[in-house]
Write a protein that binds this DNA or RNA. Structure first.
Lengths: 227, 227
DNA sequence: ACCTGAAATCTGATATATCAAGCTGGAAAT
DNA sequence: ATTTCCAGCTTGATATATCAGATTTCAGGT
């Protein structure tokens, strides 16, 4: 590739384009705190460290700027703009969007989707006892996916996914608490009931409260970890 | 600049970077309907039409992709993904985020900000009678800005601004209706009262309903215009 | 006519070169 | 010693060249 040695954690696997690879890499470095807020990024240096040219890096940085994780001052430089306050706001954004999705889902859900939500809730209840956290995470995701599908809101879904800042490890850490697992299932059951009853206002409120409550849990976790 | 003639509507003014200029240009072309949904974009052709190289264009397209206005299929091409359904979802996104901002504002607003909201409302009432639509638009923006400031949510504010698809002309068109002007002021007064009373739930609901109602108005306008 | 596949071509992805704005350090003036 | 200012350097912005995947075209076979 370039003239320099690639310093990537792993050799740049060509699973996807370089720019997407780099985007994920830098984004994760920012939200996980390895790149601190306020830090300046040098395009050439970073590119050569990654063993790539500046072109795909610039594109990745543009996307991160659009997401509000870095800020570019023309002819000056690129600075990481991410801190605890923004992490909290991203959680609030997720709550706002996810609850709007739940609202739409309550208007448009069909019987098949209701059945699938209920089936997933039964599995979650079972998962509570076997304490299979990995399975619970997967079930949670599938549950939210059914709601997303019911809402028919592709754009909101996409916008929502951009507000995620917690990786698998963080999720695992939070759901390792007995009480959190229990609460999550309870809240999911209430949300499913509201959607099944076609009550948009209730579904929206329950979803918002759920995302904010569990989000706060994540926030204190990572601030405690301090990485 | 490039070897070709610049085909930009106006010669590329260097008010800001080319990529920002091009970004605005292409974004406006998409949301205004000059670039139809599904249409394929050829990077080189578009770049030469604009009289620029592909580098800043690629960056602009990356941002548009992050916003969900175009979709890039690796090694295949870039396609415009925007239609009436997405326009409606962007309006819903704006409602979701703006109402979350109003919620936060109701928690954090101070007396000075309340006073400024009320002063603006008085001006709006006056503007109703003089039918100065331009001034009303400006006042509306300032009113929302006070709420944004009261919320203290910079990230949400930024995210919100990304959901705007209506230009000045569209706003002017909607507020040219007598009834719409009246409704808007009424709703703004209710929202201000809820925030001043520190009632987050009420403020959120009123703001959501306001954005959705006036948003639907915009949507039918542009679909009627069909440009 | 229809299928097959390899060459030609198109085009996005990546790399490299060039341009110009902003920073820095030190020399010169006060 | 302090300030000013210009030269050189740094670095983001832009342009251009190269690479490689995907599509198209068309010759050759059935």
């Amino acid at each position: 590739m370039g003239g320099e040695d690639a310093l990537l954690p792993v050799e740049p696997v060509f699973l996807k384009s370089l720019r997407d690879h780099v985007y994920s890499l830098v984004r994760d470095a920012i939200v996980s705190g390895r790149l601190k807020g306020g830090e300046k990024l040098n395009e050439r240096q970073l590119a050569s460290q990654l063993g790539i040219s500046t072109t795909p890096l610039k594109e990745a940085l543009r996307v991160l700027e659009a997401e509000g994780l870095v800020r570019s001052e023309p002819r000056r430089g690129i600075y990481v703009t991410f801190n605890a306050a923004q992490a909290e706001e991203m959680m609030l954004a997720r709550a706002a969007i996810e609850s709007m999705i739940a609202r739409q889902a309550a208007k448009r859900v069909n019987e098949d989707q209701i059945a699938r939500m209920r089936a997933l809730l039964v599995e979650m209840r079972a998962g509570l006892e076997t304490v299979d956290v990995l399975q619970l995470i997967a079930l949670n995701e599938r549950f939210h996916n059914v709601i997303h599908e019911a809402s028919g809101c592709d754009y909101l879904r996409r916008l929502q996914s951009g507000q995620n800042i917690y990786n698998h490890t963080a999720r695992l850490s939070v759901l390792s608490e007995e009480r959190e697992r229990f609460l999550a299932v309870e809240e999911h059951e209430a949300i499913a009931s509201a959607i099944a009853a076609r009550e948009p206002d209730l579904a929206e409120r329950l979803m918002r409260d759920h995302v904010i409550r569990s989000g706060e849990k994540h926030l204190v976790r990572v601030s405690q970890a301090g990485n």
